[in-house]
Write a protein that binds this DNA or RNA. Structure first.
Length: 801
RNA sequence: GCCGAUGUGGCGGAAUAGGCAGACGCAAGGGACUUAAAAUCCCUCGCUGGCAACAGCGUACCGGUUCAAGUCCGGUCAUCGGCACCA
């Protein structure tokens, strides 16, 4: 009996859709379960097997939850704004709207072919007016609450994409999209004040269940450090030069200070600095370098000593030289540091090169070789002398700083404010008007959505200006405040905007009054389980947690953390073990697998191929192995016998497997869950027959992985109903153990024999039984037994001398 | 440099809480069925020695704790990921 997977899969996909079995119910007294997967960017290349793996995890959980009686929300949508579409549109002349629609259609049909149990009534598309209206609405709310500001700054600029990039999008000095070198450029930038939420984002991590490395990466990204601000004075002025340090305990070891070349105080005192021409020259040199070059560790320290501009250490009133150097950044702390060459390697390197004194204040290192960052007894430090514990030294110093009014405790974050505009066409217009009279004016809420105009030419301007600049009908408008002629902001939002709140829209996707109904939000929120890629845990997740937390603070959502649990799947590598990429030609197309082996095989394989959280290479042969398994499942029908109970032979195996599969699915151990089902099917074929009751249980357990073939068997066998809304099987803990078990017998810790004993055997009997064994006897006889151990259900160990 | 993870057969990977290492699958070899091939079914399959029963070795490397270590502890090496002149 050949299994016709193609016809069967199409048949059941249609039946599920007709019956609406995967539609989440808004008014239900069932317990809810909200499973979220990262919605795809609908690229022209179509879906990738990586998408299939990413969605299959929670797909299995969702199908299981429905059978366990939950009301499940498992939605999908499209994160469709973005550069690749725009670039493709520029190249081909096809409008991005059209490109996007085609791609979404393609993705939809691909997803449906795999049989995912998404609720297709709730699809969101970030580029639709009824969606981005609310993206703009949230932006305006942030504006209203002073979380949006504009600043002229040196920005990371990609000359190839002609676009300003955030620090996140330009890591390593390369453009995240096209990988060209980025340059520094002065631009007007819209910022979202995410730093204001740094502490809340950090504290929120205590309330959620994220994988440990996901949590750690977010903590590192936020990068909180605690230390102190200390006010140094500048000789012959009233000026305070404020610095930030994490080591206030080393204040007596300060022998110089360093300011960032861009520090604004330099210009104020240029008349006092007799070598200001040198300062200017150094600044010009630094401005040429990108942030990336400046942060290269390997290079030698450079800098200029300021002549006539001298600092005074506030704890001992010592005069100390001040330098400028690009190893100090304007963007972190105060843009100036106190330098302690004895205990900081960077300061040490600088001091050695520029011949500055090195004063040891913590014993334990060798000042002639390198800086010492360890613990030790304080010396040369006045009131700290003799203290040996870093914590108490810092505490004592903070007390003194406070008493004398020269400093205080402080915290700093590595995270920077979020550069929020792009000079691009295919994005949400920023709803702001520039009025010559009133300045920056937000578009009124009732004028939303501010529609992205349909244009013919979406090439960016020569100077990296937005293509929208050229659309006069869009740019020219009346000021909403005073009614005079004004101009619209022409920049659009970054791709991260639409994805920052999409999970909220799934809860109420067709609402025209608000982004989502409050009652529905309280029922469905928060997301119970969010799965996606590791590459999104810092940017996307931090951004969306920030937006969500903001909405919570202004009373728009009833729960503070959006995602209760977060997991991440590992990559699927090409058959060559390398990351899949077009250029390497090692990309596997899920369509091909569905066409030649079926969706059930594809789904089973991506979960069986290895540890779900780790990367694993694609193997066509292993896919065939899963195909064999699926065919063996189909052929179970040939050995089915009547019986509405588990058979004696297989009862224990069934209970064990139900338990194993149930637990493994909850712990991302899909590979061992499938392995358990394979083991069970081997046992069934060994036994020679399967009862109807057993077959029903088997297909139910396999259903979340291979839903089509199992529905078909369920239907052919007349088991009744649809598995999609069937019941998850139960197991009896007591029946998970065989009456007779095999235990190992060791002598001196070495395996000597295996014996069969009743499962409930006591220690004494087990040891006695072990001693009966010939091989064991031979080892034990004539020797002194020192110790006898029995580990229940596992082994006996006899120690002899 | 700092932080984190990982290291098990020819391959992907299993192994509860310190208790039989290698489940399950792939590949490989042998056999059955077949005119033949595919498919399917059966057997073997960590390494070394032996016809064999069996013996010795074996979870990156070195050492330790323990009756017992893939698992715990100390050290070393390698690979991957994140952060990085962050004061």
């Amino acid at each position: 009996m050949i299994y016709n997977f193609k016809a069967t899969e199409e048949k059941w996909q249609k039946k599920w859709e007709e019956a609406g079995v995967f539609n989440a119910q808004d008014n239900s007294d069932k317990k809810k379960f909200y499973a979220l997967v990262e919605f795809p960017y609908p690229s022209g290349a179509g879906m990738h097997v990586g998408h299939i793996k990413a969605y299959s995890g929670l797909e299995v959980v969702s199908r299981k939850r429905r059978m366990q009686g939950y009301n499940v929300l498992f939605p999908i949508g499209f994160d469709a704004y973005g550069l690749p579409t725009e670039n493709y549109a520029i190249k081909t002349g096809i409008h991005p709207r059209k490109v996007t629609d085609t791609n979404i259609e393609n993705f939809t049909s691909q997803l449906k072919k795999v049989g995912f149990s998404f609720d297709w009534n709730r699809v969101v598309d970030t580029t639709q007016e009824d969606y981005y209206k609310w993206t703009q609405w949230i932006f305006l709310k942030m504006f209203e609450h002073n979380l949006v500001f504009r600043d002229k700054t040196l920005v990371n600029y990609c000359p190839s994409c002609k676009v300003v990039l955030s620090n996140e999008d330009s890591q390593g000095g390369k453009c995240d999209i096209c990988h060209s070198d980025i340059v520094q450029k002065a631009k007007d930038v819209w910022y979202l004040r995410i730093t204001e939420y740094a502490d809340k984002l950090l504290e929120g991590l205590d309330k959620v269940d994220y994988l440990p490395n996901v949590r750690l990466q977010q903590e590192n990204w936020i990068g909180k450090s605690t230390g102190a601000f200390v006010n140094f004075t500048v000789k012959d002025t009233q000026e305070t030069l404020r610095i930030y340090t994490t080591r206030p305990d080393t204040l007596f070891g300060v022998t110089f200070m360093v300011m960032a070349p861009e520090h604004p105080m330099l210009d104020k005192y240029k008349d006092m600095i007799s070598n200001f021409n040198e300062v200017e020259a150094y600044r010009t040199e630094c401005a040429k370098k990108t942030e990336f070059e400046r942060t290269q560790l390997v290079k030698e320290k450079t800098g200029v000593k300021l002549a006539g501009f001298v600092g005074i250490n506030p704890v001992n009133n010592k005069e100390i030289p001040i330098f400028i150097s690009d190893y100090v950044m304007m963007g972190y702390g105060t843009g100036a540091i106190m330098a302690v060459p004895a205990h900081d390697q960077r300061d040490y390197d600088f001091a050695k090169k520029f011949g500055v004194d090195i004063i040891e204040v913590i014993k334990g290192g060798d000042m002639s070789v390198e800086a010492y960052a360890g613990d030790g007894e304080m010396v040369n430090s006045d009131f700290l002398n003799g203290l040996t514990d870093k914590k108490s030294s810092i505490a004592r110093m903070l007390e003194v700083l406070a008493e004398r009014g020269i400093g205080e405790k402080g915290v700093q974050y590595k995270m920077k404010d979020w550069a929020f505009n792009r000079q691009r066409y295919w994005g949400e217009p920023i709803p702001i008007v520039h009025c010559p009279e009133c300045g920056i004016v937000p578009v009124p809420y009732d004028e939303l959505p501010l529609t992205l105009p349909t244009v013919e030419n979406f090439e960016p301007g020569s100077d990296g200006e937005s293509p929208l600049v050229k659309i006069e009908s869009f740019v020219n408008c009346k000021c909403p405040k005073c009614g005079k002629d004004a101009k619209r902001e022409t920049d659009t939002m970054p791709q991260w905007a639409g994805s920052s709140w999409y999970f909220l829209r799934y809860i109420d996707p067709h609402n025209t009054e608000c982004f989502a109904d409050k009652e529905k939000l309280s029922y469905w929120g928060p997301v119970d389980w969010y799965n996606g890629g590791m590459e999104h845990v810092t940017r996307h997740m931090i951004y969306s947690r920030f937006w969500h937390r903001f909405l919570y603070d202004i009373g728009e959502v009833p729960f503070d953390e959006p995602y209760a649990k977060r997991t991440a799947q590992g990559l699927i590598l090409g058959p060559d073990g390398e990351k899949m990429s077009k250029s390497k030609g090692n990309v596997v197309n899920p369509n091909d697998v569905v066409d030649s082996f079926g969706a059930d095989v594809l789904r089973t394989y991506v979960l069986f191929m290895g540890d779900y959280e780790k990367a694993a290479p694609w193997s066509e042969n292993s896919v065939k192995g899963c195909k064999r398994f699926i065919d063996r499942v189909w052929n179970l029908q040939e050995i089915v016998v009547d019986g509405d109970e588990y058979s004696k032979k297989l009862e224990t195996s069934f209970h064990k497997t139900i338990k194993k599969v149930s637990e493994d699915i909850e712990n991302l151990k899909y590979n061992t869950a499938i392995a358990a089902l394979m083991t069970l099917i081997n046992e069934i074929y060994d036994a020679g027959s399967i009862t109807k009751a057993e077959l029903k249980t088997f297909v139910t357990l396999l259903n979340p992985f291979a839903p089509h073939i199992t529905e078909e068997i369920n239907s052919v066998m007349n088991f009744g109903g649809m598995l999609a809304n069937g019941n998850w099987p139960e197991y009896d803990e007591a029946k998970c153990v065989d009456a007779e078990i095999e235990i190992a017998v060791q002598v001196n810790g070495k395996l000597k024999a295996r014996i069969n004993v009743p499962a409930e055997i006591e220690q004494a009997e087990a040891i006695a039984a072990a001693k009966e064994n010939e091989a064991v006897k031979a080892m034990v006889d004539g020797k002194t037994v020192v110790k006898e151990l029995y580990v229940k259900g596992r082994l006996v160990n006899i120690v002899v001398k």
